[in-house]
Amino acid sequence: MGLNIVVCVKNVPSTLTVDVGPDGQPKTAGLVCAMNAFDEYAVEEAVRIKERVPGSTVTALTLGPEADQAVLRDALSRGCDAAAHVCGPEFAGSDVFATSKALAAAIRKLSAQKPVHLALFGKNSNDGNSGAVGGMVAAWLDWPGVLSVKKVESVDESSAVLWRMMEDGVDVVKVSLPAAVGTVKEINEPRIPSLKGKMAAKKAVIPKWTASDLGLKPEEVGLAGSKTKVARCTHPPARGAGTRVEGASSAEKAAKLVDILVERKLI
């Protein structure tokens, strides 16, 4: 018994300061990459559920080029038991539609070995920022998909009670499993990788799956299987130079500030 949990992770540039190349695309070559920060919370939650429900296992899953194997080893060092890497030149240029389709196919492949109960996701990636892949994987698999989850109140092999952070409060919902769950940062405090975990991660054998391994045609993935394409990126316009409020006293500064706020109809 126990739960078979999948957690999806992404290797992203560690910086947000990215230049644009002559082709109009972000210049990411050579940037230092690491696990997307939000995914650390999803990994931690997967491991915590494993610890709560005896007999559970966690498999980390990613889609990306060869070098992204590093993010799976990082996930293993944080307590995941196994990993799988969706990888191949045919996946280049995948948008959220093609990415989610391939990840859903990989989860189906894992389910064929042993049914998957739960797929966990971070809030969004720090490069693409969509936060769509978790919800779309749910749709491909025809599972319920609950995003913005801040607490897993209870979970067993058949259902989970989840706290969903809405803009105006918190929803408590019960979903039957299998289900996909998108997490938010408030859900936990991720632990740091253990030495034992790092050793195990180093030795782990990680299978690589191409589109054909997932039963997908090359034209169903990558740019060909995508529904959107980033034509070009630009830097947002810089803010104009601001006004500095000067004054001999704090009272004078306060009065001048309020003058400006009123004059510009900001209050």
Binding site: L16, V18, P26, N126, N129, V230, A231, C233, T234, P236
Partner: peptide, 10 residues
């Protein structure tokens, strides 16, 4: 994209 550091034309 990149948390508002870039604007992407989609």
């Amino acid at each position: 994209a990149y948390s508002g550091n870039l604007v992407a034309d989609v």
